[in-house]
């Protein structure tokens, strides 16, 4: 396996210049994610309007996989309903942990760039932290979530 399958250009780019890396002051939902063993920390902010995500952002610190995953996630979530976001999470989870067979890669769009993470089991938790935090935000969970 080539390292470039893991660290694709789009991952490197989103790590260097994370999109939607900001706080939403009047966010309607918010949750924290924290992986104490590796120190990755993030906060997800969401504005829900008429059952859809009108704005979503994040802040925090972590490795390239965790940062790029969160950045890509915020890009694809805008305009999605809660149900669509849940479906994407489900798809993403399968992409990262199971055989890619049966995963709707078209649906995932640029998120599919994270597929290389599957070959690095110790790094899957980095890529999924933002998604679990998103889910916690949508479900209004107060406790910080973890994927360790």
């Amino acid at each position: 396996m080539d390292l470039r399958d893991l660290y694709q250009d789009i991952i490197v780019d989103h790590n260097r210049s994370p999109r939607n890396f900001r706080r939403i002051d009047n966010a309607t939902r918010m949750a924290q994610g924290y992986n104490p063993l590796c120190g990755d920390k993030l906060v997800i902010y969401i504005t829900l309007k008429d059952g859809a995500i009108s704005d979503v952002s994040f802040q925090g610190e972590g490795c390239a996989i965790s940062t790029a995953s969160a950045s890509l996630m915020t890009e694809v979530l805008k305009g999605k309903t809660e149900a669509e976001a849940e479906a994407l999470f489900d798809n993403m989870h399968r992409l990262l942990t199971e055989d890619a067979h049966g995963v709707d890669v078209d649906e995932l769009g640029k998120l599919a760039a994270l597929e290389g993470v599957r070959a690095y089991p110790t790094r899957v938790k980095c890529a999924t932290l933002c998604w679990h935090t998103l889910q916690a935000a949508l479900e209004e969970v107060d406790e910080p979530v973890t994927t360790e």
Binding site: L3, L6, Y7, R16, C38, G62, C63, A64, I65, Y120, R123, C126
Partner: peptide
Amino acid sequence: GVHAHDLGTI
């Protein structure tokens, strides 16, 4: 510019 965990993998 390189997080310790990315470095560990590389």
